[in-house]
């Protein structure tokens, strides 16, 4: 299974980060930061494959500081 923002979704072979985000119903744009486990994933890396058990966080910048 893959966890995306606390939502559990079913893993399948060949699943990418982009696929997982779409399955979870999340949206991303240039204001979002993606964390895979504890690493930061760049926008241009979302076609990277995920492994079973990956934890993804889709985080959105709301303000500055």
């Amino acid at each position: 299974m893959i966890v995306v923002n606390d939502k559990i979704i079913k893993f399948y072979e060949g699943m990418t980060i982009a696929d997982a985000i779409k399955e979870a119903g999340e949206m991303i744009d240039y204001m979002t930061i993606i964390m895979q486990d504890k690493s930061i994933i760049q926008y241009n890396q979302i076609d990277k494959k995920v492994s079973d058990g990956t934890n993804l966080k889709i985080l959105r910048i709301l303000s500055g500081g």
Binding site: N5, D6, I40, K57, I58, L59, R60, I61, L62, G64
Partner: peptide, 10 residues
């Protein structure tokens, strides 16, 4: 919980 400021920092 979905805020990068909480998960990482500013």
């Amino acid at each position: 919980k979905k805020d990068p400021f909480h998960n990482i920092g500013t």
